[in-house]
Structures are given as C-alpha cells and as structure tokens.
C-alpha cells in the first residue's frame, strides 16, 4: 500500500452507558477506531453487542458518555442539536434496517428531501435525484408512492436517499436485515458498487456471514468492545 487515504472517522475511548431504573448497561465499553476514506467496513457482532449504538454515535444521532469522535475534520461529540443536524445533512447518509421512508411521498420525493435540506437548486435537484434513482435501478418507479414498492425496492430508495447528497460517509444499520437473501444480496452489492464508483466511506452492520463477506474490513463487536479488526480480500 502506498500513501494511506486520509482519515474518515476517528474514535478515541468512546463509551456509552445507558442507565435504566438504577442499573447501568455499558453498550459501548471503550472503542478506539479509525476508518480511512473509501473503506467498505462491516461491523459484525451478535444482537445487543452495540452495533446500532456505535453507528448512531458516529452519525451524531446521540452523544457518547465519554470519549471523542471525529468525522472528517469535524469533532462531533458535544455538538448542539442544530449543529449535529447540519453536520448530518452535509456529511452523512443513513440506511436503516426498516427502510424508514416517508410513506406519503414518492420515491423521487423521498430522495429529493435531502437535496431540499441542502438547498440545491430545482433543476440540479431534479437531475441529481433522477441520476441517483437510475443508479439504484428505480428510474421507472420514481413517481410511485413508496408504500406501493416492494421491500427490496424501498431499500433501494433508501440507499439512493443516503447517497444523493454526496456525503463522504454512509452508515447502514443492518441494511439487509429485513430482506430475503436475494434482495439482501442485491442491496449490499449496490452499496459496494457505489462505494467503489464514488469513493464513499461505508460502515454497515450485519450478523449475516454472506453479507459480512462483502466487506474489505470486518470489525467484530462483542459486549461493547471491538474484539477483532481484520482485513479481508476477494469479496464475491
């Protein structure tokens, strides 16, 4: 390897402790981690190991109990609600296990919302949304209400929504968890392709070996700690 790519994400001593009626749950018990730009990384681990918590913290949807988190050049622990909203708008794309599209909007409108938040002009917006929907193979269904789409199609809209704003980082929390293996496979293939074409850093979680196999790097999470950090080659 020649010059290493610049840092995309850097965590130092990150912990997250939930307190529920008296007793504490250490969801993350000291995470040190760096991701480089363009990496395609899987967070692997059993249910309850802290995958979602970690993704939420990196996406500034929640604040850690202790530790520091940098995304790109920005220190994000300690941002106000307003600041973290503007950070997410610019710097991250989310894909959820349950798709989470706005049910009353069409696929086009769901994807467009991100560009509306970013203040992109009408004509450029149209063109970018259509290009993005074409990239995920949904150009023909752009104007359908998302409630009329299949699960696989909905998750494609969600992927388009996560990437249309050109964020440097995409966070996907079990993106294939609610899909059958064929659809799951095609979603991870899509994420992988977009990662390679655009150089977007992707961090996704999964406990399905066939999905984990697509990553260049696998972080194994157990009881809130990274127990293994390995590179792998020759994805399917």
């Amino acid at each position: 390897m020649s010059d290493p790519a610049p840092l995309a994400v850097a965590l130092q001593g990150v912990t997250m402790t939930y307190r529920t009626n008296g007793h504490a749950v250490h969801a993350l018990a000291g995470i040190d981690l760096t991701l480089r730009q363009g990496e395609f990384v899987c967070l692997a681990g059993p249910s309850g190991s802290g995958k979602s918590t970690l993704l939420h913290l990196i996406g500034s949807l929640d604040q850690p109990t202790s530790g520091t988190i940098r995304v790109g050049e920005q220190e994000i622990s300690g941002l106000s609600r307003q600041e973290s909203a503007l950070f997410r708008r610019r710097a991250t794309g989310f894909v959820f296990q349950t798709f989470n599209l706005i049910p009353v909007l069409s696929g086009f409108e769901n994807v467009e919302y991100v560009l509306l938040l970013q203040g992109v002009e009408t004509s450029e917006r149209r063109q970018r949304v259509m290009a993005m929907l074409a990239a995920v193979g949904l150009a023909e269904l752009a104007d359908r209400r998302v409630t009329e789409l299949s699960g696989g199609q909905q998750q494609r809209v969600a992927v388009a929504r996560a990437l249309v704003g050109n964020p440097p980082l995409v966070l996907a929390d079990e993106p294939t968890g609610n899909l059958d293996s064929t659809n799951g496979e095609s979603i991870i293939r899509l994420l992988r392709r977009l990662n390679e074409e655009r150089g977007t850093t992707v961090l996704y979680s999964s406990h399905d070996p066939r999905i984990i196999a697509w990553a260049d790097r696998v972080l194994s999470l157990q009881d809130g700690r990274i127990t293994e950090d390995r590179q792998q080659t020759g994805h399917p």
């Binding site: 996406g59 949807l61 609600r81 307003q82 909203a85 503007l86 950070f87 997410r88 708008r89 610019r90 991250t92 989310f94 959820f96 349950t98 989470n100 599209l101 706005i102 049910p103 919302y113 991100v114 938040l117 970013q118 929504r161 704003g165």
Partner: peptide, 16 residues
C-alpha cells in the same frame, strides 16, 4: 415519531 426521527437523521433541524 419514526418519521420525525428519520427526518432528523437526514439532517432536518428542530426548526424544520
């Protein structure tokens, strides 16, 4: 709730 959570994740501010 989920919808507002999603919009927030996309970068909607409290004002939005």
């Amino acid at each position: 709730f989920r919808e507002f959570g999603t919009l927030t994740a996309l970068g909607a501010t409290p004002k939005n």
